[in-house]
Design a binder for these strands. Structure first.
Lengths: 321, 321
DNA sequence: AGGCCGTAGTTAATCGATTACACATGGATG
DNA sequence: CATCCATGTGTAATCGATTAACTACGGCCT
């Protein structure tokens, strides 16, 4: 910057003013400065700028698993929304581990992100408290924590799950296996709560860990226990369950019905196409980014609750109803 | 930091030394400083540190599309490898657009990443030159550019493609449709070059843009033109092609054979399971991160060329051979 | 006792920007 | 013609760390 100033025969203050579009500099000065910038190929140092202004124009996003397309879509949406407001997004991959999540959150805070979006790995509120105590704007995404004091953006699958459960019972299923998320995640608990409320003893619940492998294992157990329908609360575990069903040579929906939370582009391609509860991932991501930006701008955004939709495709024997 | 120093009754220099594990401070001083840090909940400002040390301990990764699981896996691997060396990764999503790619690259450079990993959207070398001119360590990933002067990490699918092509010809296919990537990407061109070399006039090539939609359209055209086999050069376009095949009610492999570049966890679940050319994504990501770190440490890493493997599953009529 | 040295710690410059304040210039005003 | 104000620019402090150069303090040797 000093070089640019010298080249243009002005002070660094003037260069800075030109860069930041202040009213002061004369059109001619501005021209000269811009020419010098161009000629020297100068690019301002964002670190120095941020240090001085205490604003990085960056949002932190800590998600549970980048390989889960559900989160990848969210990340993408967050990024789009942020970019359209001149913000950049730094993504941290917690890998469904509370420790790694904490590490990432701290790293991002150390780098002074202007705000943080978090998909908490567990419903333990301590990390959230820590961030709030630091005064950094925080929005929770997809999952919440106990006694959360910050805005939360998530999808509500109660209606869809209820409709699905009724349908399965109506089709005569009397042993419905539920492959749920970990009991210490809000999504893991809430979704199963809805189901048990509707299904009562008909439901048999096994908790997985939102990973493919746990889906296969849970499916194996449930099938061994005589389940005639499987409801899987996450697409990765759904993938595992599907693998197990195929490995056993079972026919969907004849031998076993299947429904999965989260839609994926390849679900319609299976035979039969898979019935899903689709979450509005893009809208969730965008809404979360908007809420966070609002918070950064001193507003107090409300919680956002979007609805997940039941998409019937055939894997629950819809055709036969 | 000043507060911590005061609290511990030392100077900021001493605090800094404690933080950075310098030899100087006495165990007692160290204790006192650590206590003060603990008590005040002090966390060092990474921006200030980076400004002073001109090192951010951060790698930039600009990829073509986060929603493409191929790149998501790579991103994940890069991140793992980087983290194990104490580096953080900032991901930028170019969305297969050269402009957005350039924007991201510049943003990352402005933030002074220590090095950059790039999956170039086109084979135009100008952006690469710009980065190199800035003296920032750069490694290309998956794709290269014309006259690249930096290390490149990619997968070689020639053998696998050749074997696949021979097999298809051997099975009697005389019109083989190839859905390729854009001709101005190295992967788009090289893969088709291999195929045309082996197949000659038997191959009919349509270029897509690495997105699902273009896969459907290309498949439609090729099928209309009488193709009895499709080779798709990317998993997203493969998804599109599959959709088109299903929409037309064609049976795989009876009516049409199909093979796709990039393996995906759900390919084995289709009926029949899809034959693929699997790229070693994790190894690619790790290797790229390692090369970049080597470059940052002043070494001159070689190009890395990993081999993609043909995985026969049935969608090319393997059972019938 | 005096000189020397190693060690622990302090002072102050520095990284590259932003910005409050001071200053100079020139035109309008009484 | 002196005064005042508006306007454009420069000076220098500042953000929060790191680190070279310096100082103070003991202990050791002769």
């Amino acid at each position: 910057m000093k070089d640019v100033a010298q080249h243009a025969g002005v002070s660094t203050a003037t260069v800075s003013r030109v860069l930041n579009g202040h009213a002061a500099p004369t059109p001619e000065t501005r021209e000269r400065v811009l020419a010098a910038i161009e000629e020297l190929g100068y690019r301002p140092n964002a670190l120095a700028r941020s240090l001085r202004t205490t604003s990085t124009q960056t949002l932190g996003l800590v998600i549970s698993d980048l390989l889960n397309p559900f989160f990848a879509e969210i990340a993408r949406a967050v990024e789009d929304e942020a970019r359209s407001h001149g913000y950049c997004v730094v993504i941290g991959n917690a890998d469904e581990s509370a420790e790694q999540e904490a590490t990432y959150v701290r790293t991002l805070l150390d780098r002074r992100v202007d705000g943080l979006l978090l998909c908490p790995a567990t419903d333990d509120p301590s990390l959230v408290r820590e961030v709030s105590a630091g005064g950094v704007p925080l929005v929770l995404l997809d999952r919440t924590v106990r006694g959360a004091t910050c805005p939360v953006v998530r999808a509500d699958g109660s209606e869809a799950l209820t409709a699905l459960a009724r349908r399965l019972v109506g089709a005569g299923h009397s042993r419905i296996g539920v492959i749920a998320g970990p009991p210490n995640t809000s999504t893991g608990r809430e979704r199963t709560d809805v189901l048990t409320a509707v299904l009562g003893g008909v439901a048999q619940i096994v908790h997985g860990d939102f990973r493919q492998e746990s889906g296969s294992q849970a499916a194996a157990r449930l099938i061994d226990d005589g389940a005639t329908a499987l409801v899987v609360m996450d697409n990765l575990m759904g993938l595992g369950a599907l693998g197990e069903i195929r490995a056993r040579g079972l026919q969907i929906p004849h031998d076993i019905a299947l429904a999965v939370f989260d839609d994926q582009p390849w679900f319609p391609l299976l035979d039969p196409p898979i019935t899903v509860i689709a979450q509005p991932t893009v809208e969730m991501g965008r809404a979360a980014a908007r809420s966070l930006l609002a918070l950064i701008n001193g507003q107090q955004p409300d919680d956002v609750r979007l609805t997940a939709k039941l998409v019937l495709r055939g894997s629950c024997g819809e055709a036969e109803l």
